[in-house]
């Protein structure tokens, strides 16, 4: 079996993270922003698990990934509730409709 080197995982994770970050910064749809954050968190998970295979003496990386998955779910629950509240008031989930607070 040819094993895939660590760098491949890291590059994939970095690309996913960058896609998530760009999506978060560029898109104005709150749901897309939420998904972008999920992408970023999953990129972190891939990185952690890949590194854990490299540092084989413990399972810290994998444990960390599980915690991130759990917390990401909680975060999505609160985030969706806020998006829902925004939609009820504005009939839209675009973040640029929320523009009451300004300098």
């Amino acid at each position: 079996m040819i094993s895939i080197p660590l760098e491949h995982y890291l590059v994939v994770a970095a690309v996913i993270f960058a896609i998530g970050a760009c999506g978060f910064l560029a898109r104005r749809n709150a749901l897309v922003a939420l998904m972008s954050i999920e992408l970023m968190l999953n990129a972190v998970n891939v990185t952690l698990v890949a590194f854990n295979r490299w540092h084989g003496d413990n399972h810290t990386g994998q444990m960390f990934a599980f915690f991130i998955i759990a917390v990401a779910a909680a975060e999505a629950a609160v985030g969706l509730a806020i998006v829902l509240a925004l939609f009820r008031l504005k009939k839209s989930v675009r973040t640029d409709t929320a523009d009451l607070l300004k300098n």
């Binding site: 978060f24 709150a30 954050i37 609160v78 806020i82 509240a85 929320a98 009451l100 607070l101």
Partner: peptide, 8 residues
Amino acid sequence: EAAMKYFL
């Protein structure tokens, strides 16, 4: 809106 911005 404040919660939205803070959350994101």
